[in-house]
Design a protein around this nucleic acid. Structure first.
Lengths: 339, 339
DNA sequence: TAAGCTTGGGGGACCGCTTTAATATAACCA
DNA sequence: TGGTTATATTAAAGCGGTCCCCCAAGCTTA
């Protein structure tokens, strides 16, 4: 490879000073003659000069980088979330660095450090296992603005959220309106704040019907397809008429387990999910679920963060996005004596 | 935020010179007394000193960064691929910067430039729409090693691949062995080299049975679930007994379209996919497909690239990974007079 | 005609770090 | 005792940029 061309090379070639080149290339060249300006620009093209990223950032103090931490890239919800991030980051000339922390505590800390090292301007963190206060401590110490996602309890950092409590209620209402009374709840291992909200909302929804969700009706497993599948027997043992899965992935896993037993959805068992990943529309039967606007959430999260980057002394930002019940084919209307 | 702590602050606090601190922190501190070393290390912890990334890279000339370009993050195949990349990158102290080019030509070029600007040490490119020669020209001009993926025609850059030709054959063989003769092929819009191989292999497989794949039996659509779904009518119109989808995503889309018509898989129609994304095991009926080791491919790709980074004058690297037929429930054994 | 603008351009400090080469002291050996 | 070597530490030269501030020459203007 040819030796890298520096600003000094370019200056020399153009017969001007380094200052002149720098100014012109940074759009501050009004005070130079057209002649000089053209010459520099032409020569830049010709020599293929690209300002050294590190040198530039060193002095500018910004990397135009946003760090992103998600628990699982393979979950379509997060794929969409990331796509949203990428889109608006790009339009603001930021670059997202994405880490899949794999729900692994240690890895997350590592990545967090890596992002700090790399002087990310801001962070978007969707972490189940990192403690919000830990994050806050380490990040504010380093003066890095961030936005917490999927973990909205702590009143720190900015926030983009959906009303999970209401989402839980919506799910309950719908299931109950379809006549279901014996409902099982399928949840993950570590209950983040937002999930907790969903559950509470669901409970509240049942309470309105003067029903309570017995503890024995909630079963825990990992929040993946496999987790849902593995929980099949346990769920079935509860003899529910419907099960509300705390995310679509698990619902899809449960689909398989249930269908393997020859049980028909929704005739023998109704299943409801949460997230509305693209897949929900492609399984058989199509999954009834609560739609979370993952892509928009990514967009808004990034917008808020960049907003704060531009204006550090903004007060706490908070944006809520709407949830929506998507009724498809996985929940059956059953007879019910009540109501 | 407290002013960022620099190496000078730390040096002063420890009562030693900047050099000393630098050396100790970079593991070259053998020549200093234990006393000094401990003092510096302790103080680093206490002050929370993190070396400035840009300053460091400026002088070191390396960013420890690998750029990754994929066509679609939401495709589970690429999610897994990326997970593989992340894993080995991490273990070699590299950080992947991932871009989802969204099958958009312009975006891809933009991202490529961005990656060059950011002085990525090397690139892994899975691009359908960028011309291999263009990539090569721009990248070698900048002296950046790279590895092309899913586009193996060009004999440039390193290469990790599976034998798609054989994969196509395997699919054909299996379908034919199950008695299918009237087979439709569902492919994408832009046929990359590897896909072309799959198709050729498939054709060759049929040829062995003295059959030919009529052009009218191949239908094109976009390589997504939605694409598969939208192709339903066209596919059905061909009246095949089986259809081979060039990737699993399309197969799953087709599943839905077909099932909406009340057509039973595999009883009325057999469907076969390619990739073996995790989902293949969770749809109903479970999808018979050809397994591509996405995760391993990500791992190997990264290993090869890092290998080259460490040793630029390596000869062309080439690694082949095995394909595997995964028979599940979406292909039916039908009566056949032949064989 | 001297002071003051305007126009076009350059010198050089500095960003935070690594590394080379040099210095100072202590220890060892014959 | 003087020379050699080992031990412990540092001064200073950059890396490739940006930007503050100064400079020179030609024109006005009162």
């Amino acid at each position: 490879m040819a030796q890298k061309v520096t600003i000094r090379d370019l200056a020399e070639a153009a017969g001007v000073s380094v200052t002149t080149v720098s100014q012109i290339l940074n759009g501050k060249g009004d005070r130079f003659s057209n002649d000089t300006r053209d010459r520099v620009l032409k020569l830049q093209e010709k020599l293929g000069y690209v300002p050294d990223y590190n040198a530039r950032n060193l002095i500018m103090g910004s990397t135009q980088t946003i760090g992103v931490l998600v628990p699982n890239l393979a979950n379509p919800f997060f794929s969409m979330f990331i796509k949203g991030i990428q889109q608006v980051a790009q339009s603001h000339h930021f670059v997202p660095i994405i880490f899949d922390a794999n729900q692994n505590q240690k890895l997350q800390s590592m990545y967090l450090e890596e992002l700090i090292k790399r002087a990310a301007n801001g962070l978007i963190i969707a972490s189940a296992t990192l403690d919000a206060n830990d994050i806050d401590r380490i990040l504010t110490r380093n003066g890095i603005p961030y936005l917490l996602f999927d973990q909205n309890d702590a009143q720190i950092g900015d926030r983009v959220w959906v009303d999970d409590y209401k989402g839980g209620q919506m799910a309950a209402n719908y299931l109950l309106s379809q006549g279901h009374r014996r409902i099982s709840l399928l949840v993950g291992q570590d209950i983040t704040h937002n999930i907790q909200q969903r559950i509470s909302g669901f409970r509240a929804g049942m309470a309105k019907y003067h029903l309570t969700l017995a503890d024995e009706m909630v079963v825990q497993t990992s929040m993946t397809k496999l987790g849902g599948y593995q929980a099949t027997a346990t769920v079935l043992a509860k003899k529910p008429t419907a099960v509300f899965c705390i995310n679509d992935e698990m619902a899809i896993g449960l689909y398989r387990g249930v269908q393997e037993q020859g049980i028909k959805i929704p005739d023998d068992l109704s299943i409801m999910g949460y997230d509305d990943i693209d897949l929900a529309d492609f399984v058989t039967p199509k999954l009834t679920t609560i739609h979370q606007p993952a892509f928009e959430m990514g967009q808004v999260a990034t917008e808020l963060l960049i907003e704060r980057l531009n204006n550090p002394r903004l007060t706490h930002q908070d944006k809520q996005l709407p949830l929506e019940l998507i009724t498809r084919d996985s929940v059956k209307l059953i007879q019910s004596g009540i109501h």
